[in-house]
Simulated scan of single mutants.
Amino acid sequence: MPEGRERTPSEPGSTLSDATRETTRENRRTWDTWSDSYQRKHGGMLGGSQAEAWGLWRRPEHELRVLDPVAGKDVLELGCGAAHWSASLAGRGARVVGLDISGAQLRHACHRERVALVLADAQALPFADGSFDLVLSDNGAMSWADPYLTVPEVARVLRPGGQLAFCANSPFFAMCWDSRQRTLTPGLRRGYFDLHTSRVAPTAVDYVLGYGEWLRLFRSCALVVEALIEEPPPPGAATSFGDRPQEWTSRWPVEAIWSARRM
């Protein structure tokens, strides 16, 4: 397994602002509180034959073919939760580390014998430079930590030629989400140019960027985009993740799957 280590204050990504640290503490407390009910509600859809699948509608990886071959590779899953993805990739011969900010989430993953579990912040990864061939996140830490901090950290721990693959909310979701009604609306409810953070609970913040901002961030970190997948849900698809009206999701992308390569 890639070797974890403590940082020194002079290392990149090791110094976080007080505001970032407080948001991180809030998100950790929230996920520690949510964890058991989240796993009861969604665990069945996220595991088993759907472990290697993307997003709200669990699009199978064997159909989308987002990931590089994983056998013999060092893989890091950011925001692994119960580590369904991690365990499945380990079963295909990858050396996998599952990282999460929530100890309660990691307790749901503690039986994954072939996965090394790490309790840490994706905004300050406790790994040496060039430790991994693949970093992935399926609505995990790439959504629940600040991209302006996570993307440079991912680029740092990826080897040259390594892949970043992740699924996250689309800007359309962020702009059309009605937080009071807890549903998506046809009308825009916030501006495109002020996207970054959203308070999704009294003590929880998630993140989304516009497409151009993602591209500028990737480029600044020597990451080249190879794919962006946005598709409507399959006919008759269902999800356990709240109200996602078919009329809305058939017209606009609710999430985006990105693949980028470390130069």
Results as ranks from 00 to 15, higher is better:
1 M>E: 12
3 E>K: 10
4 G>W: 12
5 R>A: 04
8 T>R: 15
11 E>M: 00
11 E>A: 00
12 P>K: 10
15 T>N: 12
20 T>N: 04
22 E>N: 10
28 R>V: 12
29 R>T: 09
31 W>V: 06
32 D>E: 08
32 D>Y: 08
34 W>I: 07
35 S>M: 01
38 Y>M: 07
39 Q>K: 03
41 K>W: 04
42 H>P: 00
44 G>F: 13
45 M>H: 08
47 G>Q: 04
47 G>P: 02
52 E>H: 14
53 A>I: 07
56 L>W: 05
59 R>F: 06
60 P>I: 00
61 E>K: 04
66 V>P: 00
67 L>G: 00
71 A>W: 15
80 C>A: 12
81 G>E: 02
81 G>D: 01
87 A>R: 11
88 S>A: 15
88 S>W: 02
95 R>Y: 07
102 S>R: 00
102 S>D: 02
103 G>R: 10
106 L>N: 10
106 L>V: 08
108 H>M: 03
111 H>P: 00
111 H>V: 05
113 E>H: 11
113 E>D: 09
116 A>I: 01
118 V>K: 03
120 A>I: 13
124 A>R: 11
124 A>T: 14
127 F>K: 09
127 F>P: 03
127 F>S: 02
129 D>V: 01
131 S>K: 14
131 S>R: 13
131 S>D: 05
139 N>F: 09
143 S>I: 04
143 S>N: 08
145 A>R: 15
146 D>P: 12
147 P>A: 14
151 V>Q: 03
151 V>G: 01
154 V>L: 05
156 R>F: 06
157 V>Y: 07
157 V>K: 02
162 G>P: 01
164 L>T: 07
166 F>E: 03
167 C>V: 13
170 S>G: 13
172 F>P: 00
175 M>F: 10
177 W>T: 00
186 P>M: 15
187 G>V: 03
189 R>I: 05
191 G>F: 04
196 H>W: 10
198 S>C: 05
202 P>N: 06
203 T>Y: 11
219 R>L: 09
219 R>D: 15
220 S>E: 15
223 L>V: 08
228 L>E: 13
232 P>I: 06
236 G>F: 07
237 A>F: 14
237 A>L: 09
239 T>D: 06
242 G>D: 02
243 D>Y: 05
247 E>Q: 11
248 W>C: 04
248 W>T: 01
262 R>I: 09
